[in-house]
C-alpha cells in the first residue's frame, strides 16, 4: 500500500547507502600515506650574474662585477654583490655576460645561453650609469632582438674621465618596445617586466 512509509524499497536504499558510506570511509582512511613530498627544483632563478670587463690592453686589470643571490628573487641566504678591480681612463673594455641559475650546485643552468639568447626578441638588456663616465656601444656581432634592436649581450665600453659611481644592468622580458640607441646606447624599454635589475656600487675609473 502506498501509505506504508516503511516500505521495502526505501529500506533497501538506506541499507545500501550506509554500506556505501562505510566502504568509502574505509577507502579514505586507508589511502593515507606518510611519504615525504618531493622538493621543488626551482627553475629560471637568476642566482648568479657576472659582468666581466676585459681590457684590450692586457696590461690593465680585468674588472669583474658579480652578484650572487642563492635564492634568486626570493632574497635571503648568503648574498653578495662585489666589484673587483678598477677601470683605467681611456681604456677600451669588452663586456662578457654570464647569468646562471646555480641554486642546485650540481646542476647549474646557463640561463643566458639557454633561454635569453634563443628568445632574443623577448629579451633586452638596459644598462644604467650614475656619475660614471663611459662610452658604450653595442657590438656589430651583438644578438639582434625585437624590431632589429641589438639586445646588449656583446658590448664595448670605453672608460672616460676618472670618476666613481654606480653601474646597473637590467634584463627586461617581453617589452612592448625597445630602443638600443636610447641614453647613448645604454638602451631603454617600455612595457614588459624586469627579470633582474642589479646595481653595482663604488665602481671607479682611475
Amino acid at each position: 500500500m502506498k501509505t506504508n512509509f516503511l516500505n521495502l524499497n526505501s529500506m533497501k536504499t538506506s541499507k545500501l547507502f550506509i554500506v556505501a558510506i562505510f566502504c568509502l570511509t574505509l577507502i579514505i582512511s586507508c589511502s593515507d600515506d606518510d611519504d615525504n613530498p618531493a622538493p621543488v627544483n626551482p627553475t629560471e632563478l637568476f642566482t648568479n650574474v657576472t659582468l666581466t670587463f676585459t681590457p684590450s690592453n692586457g696590461a690593465n686589470a680585468t674588472v669583474v662585477m658579480e652578484d650572487i643571490q642563492p635564492n634568486g628573487q626570493g632574497g635571503g641566504g648568503a648574498t653578495s654583490n662585489t666589484v673587483t678591480g678598477a677601470f683605467v681612463s681611456g681604456e677600451t673594455y669588452t663586456l662578457t655576460l654570464a647569468a646562471t641559475d646555480a641554486s642546485d650546485p650540481n646542476d647549474v643552468d646557463d640561463l643566458l645561453n639557454d633561454d635569453v639568447i634563443p628568445e632574443a626578441d623577448e629579451h633586452f638588456f638596459v644598462y644604467g650609469l650614475n656619475t660614471l663616465n663611459f662610452t658604450m656601444t653595442r657590438d656589430a656581432n651583438d644578438v639582434v632582438g625585437l624590431d632589429g634592436n641589438k639586445i646588449g649581450v656583446n658590448t664595448t665600453w670605453v672608460a672616460g674621465a676618472a670618476s666613481t659611481g654606480n653601474l646597473s644592468i637590467t634584463l627586461v622580458h617581453e617589452a612592448t618596445a625597445v630602443d638600443e640607441a636610447a641614453n647613448n646606447n645604454l638602451g631603454s624599454a617600455t612595457g614588459g617586466e624586469e627579470d633582474f635589475n642589479i646595481t653595482f656600487t663604488n665602481v671607479s675609473i682611475n
Binding site: F46, D67, Q69, Q73, G75, D195, F196, N197, I198
Partner: peptide, 8 residues
C-alpha cells in the same frame, strides 16, 4: 625585499 630581480 631587494633581490636580483629588484624590489619585491
Amino acid at each position: 625585499d631587494l633581490s636580483t630581480r629588484g624590489y619585491f
